[in-house]
Every structure is written in C-alpha cells, then in structure tokens.
Design a protein around this nucleic acid. Structure first.
Lengths: 236, 236
DNA sequence: GCCTAGAGTCTACGTTGTAGAGAAGTTGTT
DNA sequence: AACAACTTCTCTACAACGTAGACTCTAGGC
C-alpha cells in the first residue's frame, strides 16, 4: 500500500532506461500473449511503465515497430552453414522455422504480410538474413547462384505455405481442437460440403511435423533430380 | 441528363438501393485501387455516396466486410471438376489462382491472414468452396479421402507460398522493378549480403509463371509417385 | 389516406496514431 | 561546483477511426 502503487506484472518495475531491445521484446511478449491487435502504442507504453510517446525514440512509427518484432522473431532462427549436406540442412531449418511459428503464432501474419508492402531491398536486415544464409549454404554446397535462388524459392515457398496451412487448422486450444472442428464443420451445409464434412475426424488429428517432413522430402529430392548434380564444381 | 443519373465511375451518385454485392464490390474496387488501409467504413460510405452507418446493414462490422471481400475475390476462381486428369487440373487451378493474386495483390494478405483468426468451420463459405472442390476432384480421380487431404495440403501449401514469394518480389511498378531492386539492394552492407547482392540481376527478371509451373511439376509428380496409384479403386 | 417495416442518417463516445512543445535527466567541459 | 549540450521522456492536442443508439425517411399493403 505504498503511495505510488506501481505494481508492474510483466513490466520493468523501476526506472531502467529504455532501449530498442527492451521495447521490442516487450512488444513481442504482448503480441504473443494477446495478439496483434493488443499491440498499440498506448498499451505498450503502459506495459513498460512509460508514456506512449517515449516509444517513438526506438521505432519511427507503429509499422516500424511491427517490423522490429518480425526481426526479433526471425533472430531466433539460427542457420549454421557448416554442414555441407544441403538436404539435411534444409530439412532441419524447416523444422526449426515451423517450431518458431508455433511458438509465436500471432507473429506469423506479420512475417508473411509485411514483406508484401516493402520492396526487398528496404526490408529490415534481420528479415533478409535467412535468405542470404540459405543462398550461401546452397552455393557452398555446389549450386550455381541462379539455381540456388530457384531452390530457395521453391523451398521457402513450400515452407511458408505449410506453416500457414498448419496454423489455420491449429486454432486456439489443441485439446478442444477436435470438438471445435466438428462443431464448426457441423455448420456447413451437407449438400455443398460432403467431402469436407466426411474428413472431419482426419482433420482433427493433423500431424504437422510429419506432413512437413514428407513435403520437404518430395520437394528436395525433386529439386536435386532436376538440377546439375551438387558436389560437382560449377566452374567451367 | 435524366433525373436519375446512374453512371457509376466508382460510386453510385443517384439513389439506387444498396445491396451486399454493391457494397462488397465497391470495397474490392477500393482495396484494389488504394490498398487495404484505404478501406475504412467512412471512406467506403463516401465512395457509395451513403452514410458510413448504412454499411452495417450489409456487413456486421469491418472484419466481416474484409471476409466478404475475400469471398468475392475467391469467387472469381472457378473449379470445374470435369477433367479426370487431376494433375492437369491442379496445374490449371494453380495458374488461375496465381493470376487472380496478381490481379488483386492487395487482397492477398487478407486471403492468407484472415483464416488464421477464424476456425475452419466458421469461415465464410465462399472461402471453403475451393477446398471442397479440390477434395472432390481428387477423390473422383481415385484418391482415398485421406490421401486427397494430404495432396491438397501439399499443393495448396506450395501454391500459397509461391504466390507470397512472387508478390514480394513484384513490388509496385514492374517497369521500375529492376532499378528499384538495385537501388534497394545497394543499401545492404556488402560484407553481410554478398550472395544477395550478386544475384540482383537475376532477381530483377523473375518469371513467376515458369517457376510456379516447375514447382507444380515437381510436387505433383512427387505426390503421384508416393501414393497408391490413382485410377485404381481404393476399396479392399 | 394511414400503418408498418426496413433502409438510411445523425449524433456522440471511446480509442487510435502521432505532431509539437516542453520538462527532466544525463553527460562532458571547465 | 557550475554551466552547457544533448538525449530521453512526458504533456497536451488533434484528426481519423469503428460503432452504439435513437432518429428520419421511404416504400408497400391495406
């Protein structure tokens, strides 16, 4: 019962100086906990025990803040370009990214959407790093640069697609998943959606990891087959 | 110069009664022309020459309006389940959807993002129709229902991934594409992004259609290979 | 003519992002 | 210790947003 009652549940209680990292990680925590809409300047300010306006020292505006959150999340992904077995690498990274998406489902819309409104070269560097690193990995493994780009595109395309797919079917609470699904699907007119309704039980237990793994296998072996065999030098 | 002058540039100047179709197509036009952020209730009302509040007769709230726009766009895609050649069908649909995305790039974030916040069964019906139809197509072609679901997931996953990829590199004005790209990439620190910078010219001329086609080929033949051969009955 | 239902409008409220001026706090120089 | 220069944080204010609730207007049926 002190006169100034600043009990800060997740916030920094005292008066430590702010920093970009502090702001961004508070933003990420907020998004993880309550979704993208909860991330308003005012709310974040309150979470940090500061005036909302103070945030503008660390992010030019709300959009930049969102970019910062994307960057922060992507930094959790580490790509170590040691292993020369590119297929194994791509598989591992795919699983890592999938887990990362499951850990921060509310951030995925950002990851997927923000690049659409920013020209490639003007994106936050943290966002481009995975691209650079995977290119590097592939080229080191023996791909010609252009082919590496093609492989990257097919790979990342499928990977993001899968993540979106899986997150769509994941919804809220995994324990209630089946019930919710049945409930939801029950609403569909049986004449128009016989197939979907019939597949309800199958939809209910969806093993995203296994499915991703199969997809990667198909894609990677398909790619390997139609490209100049890796391992051989590409110099003339 | 008749008293009721209903020439509609984008708006209906006279006093024709509103309808859901009218509202939604005006909304779509607005999004296509000026982006998602331009679609506010007030702005759309003004575009239709009506009070913003009148829109609430035709969409429960802004989110529902966005759903309506998604639905409207997806209705442009028609899946005719006649051709028993599922591979050709999937390829055709993929190209159709790609073109649709290029026609309405500003809607793509909606297509990709809104399902993430809505349980499958509660989505607008128009959004689920492609899923149902593709399932139907695959099952008719001889796939067991569960396998059809797997094929669908891999296919749609890759397809959406590709579209996102392509739209990211497309940006604004295709004529300035190369210049913009170089300009943008020039900003990147050479030490950190050597591969990306070196690939600038290749990035500049990106043939999305060809790339999609190759990817589909790989995926579809991969899928065909590892599934019980289609055409044969799946009954024991 | 009036009556009723639906379509469209008006007013108002709370919340949002952020510009601009100022206060408070920190650091370096003497 | 005293000042100045800079950074960081706060205060106030404004325009624009979504939308609740009560109103008016219009079109048909009698």
């Amino acid at each position: 019962m002190s006169p100034e009652d600043h009990s800060a549940p997740p916030a920094t209680p005292g008066k430590t100086r702010l920093s970009r990292e502090l702001v961004l990680s508070a933003a990420l925590a907020l998004v993880d906990a309550e979704g993208l809409d909860a991330l308003t300047m005012r709310r974040l300010g309150q979470e940090l025990g500061r005036d909302p306006m103070s945030l503008y020292r660390y992010a030019a505006n709300r959009a930049a803040l969102l970019d910062g959150v994307s960057e922060l999340v992507l930094d959790e992904l580490d790509i170590i370009p040691d292993d020369p077995d590119w297929q194994a690498q791509l598989r591992r990274i795919a699983h890592d990214l999938r887990l990362l998406a499951l850990r921060h489902p509310n951030v995925v819309p950002l990851l997927v959407t923000r690049p659409l409104s920013t020209p490639l070269g003007l994106r936050p560097l943290g966002t481009l790093r995975p691209l650079e690193q995977i290119l590097s990995l592939l080229i080191d493994a023996g791909f010609a640069p252009e082919d590496a780009l093609h492989v990257y595109r097919a790979y990342y395309g499928y990977l993001y697609g899968h993540i979106l797919n899986e997150l769509q079917e994941f919804v809220v609470d995994p324990d209630e998943n089946e019930a919710l699904l049945r409930l939801g699907l029950h609403r569909l007119p049986p004449k128009e959606f016989p197939r979907l309704r019939a597949l309800a039980p199958v939809l209910a237990d969806y093993d995203g990891m296994a499915e991703l793994d199969e997809g990667i296998t198909i894609l990677v072996s398909g790619l390997a087959a139609r490209l100049p065999l890796p391992g051989a030098s590409t110099k003339p």
